[in-house]
Design a protein around this nucleic acid. Structure first.
Length: 253
DNA sequence: ATGCCAGCTTAGAGCTGA
């Protein structure tokens, strides 16, 4: 079973890349973030022609998430239950017995800003809910654009901003791992300076000036089934790429 | 210190992203 996450930075623009990637990799679940479109604009027909169903939590201009699967996913939840939020950042569904939570975590803009406060409140609410989901669904994957580089090695040494690498953000990430979730990427040997996002500016991709902020976390019941996890940099090299690359987990099941 | 790029928006320069 193959589960992947990809922040596409506008599905309208990136649909050709997504269709090509689906054809090449045939994932059992592809979690998308930053659709930047409402569900009524979502390309259901094009994806269906490619052999994929979709569950969508859409929003115009900003945010928006979806899970693509070969067969229809079940038990869909949109947004964090009990957390009042205008922003469409969460969708969860069950895929072949695995609970898949797809999240577009808040950016936070700058440590100490209102947006940072929102990020921290959002993370607290998410963590409480994910704990409850894990109790209901022992086989669970939490994936998406976390907008947190969990450790020093997950950011280029020249990254100077505090955002994405600050102590409170890293503590929030550790609160998720304290639930028992494991960063699947770190179960396997990886290249030095392995990142999943590179700024469009300053030739950042060419210089590999990036961050690893897109993650796939697995519950204890899935840990032993993990066979591989890697960043696929190929789509970042295409014309008009997203600024993020997909991250892919292979499970033996 | 700011813009550098990219995508969005009831069309435009401004916001947001990371």
């Amino acid at each position: 079973m193959k589960i992947a996450t990809w922040n596409v930075n506008s599905l309208k623009i990136r649909l050709p890349h997504v269709l090509d990637w689906l054809a090449e990799h045939r994932p059992d679940a592809l979690c998308l973030q930053e659709l930047k479109q409402e569900e009524k604009a979502f390309p259901f027909a094009e994806l269906e022609a490619a052999g994929y169903h979709a569950v969508v939590n859409g929003q115009k201009t900003y945010n928006g998430v979806a899970i693509l699967t070969p067969a229809a996913a079940t038990d869909v939840v949109r947004d964090i239950p009990g957390f009042a939020d205008e922003q469409k950042r969460i969708i969860a569904a069950t895929v072949d017995g695995v609970r898949v939570i797809c999240g577009y975590f808040p950016n936070g803009q700058a440590v100490g800003s209102d947006k940072f406060d929102y990020k921290m409140r959002w993370l607290a609410a998410l963590t409480e809910w994910v704990g409850a989901e894990m109790a209901r669904h022992p086989q669970l994957v939490l994936t998406g654009d976390f907008n947190i580089a969990p450790e020093a090695r997950d950011a280029h040494p020249d990254w100077k901003d505090e955002i994405h690498v600050s102590a409170p953000e890293r503590a929030a990430f550790e609160a998720l791992t304290a639930l028992g979730l494991v960063d699947a990427f770190r179960l396997f040997e990886q290249p030095e300076r392995a990142f999943s996002w590179w700024d469009y500016r300053m030739m950042a991709f060419r210089r590999n000036f990036g961050l690893r902020i897109d993650h796939i976390l697995v519950s204890p019941a899935l840990r032993a089934a993990c066979r591989a996890c890697s960043v696929d940099k190929a789509p970042r090299r295409l014309e008009r790429p997203s600024d993020h690359a997909p991250v892919v987990l292979t499970l033996e099941r």
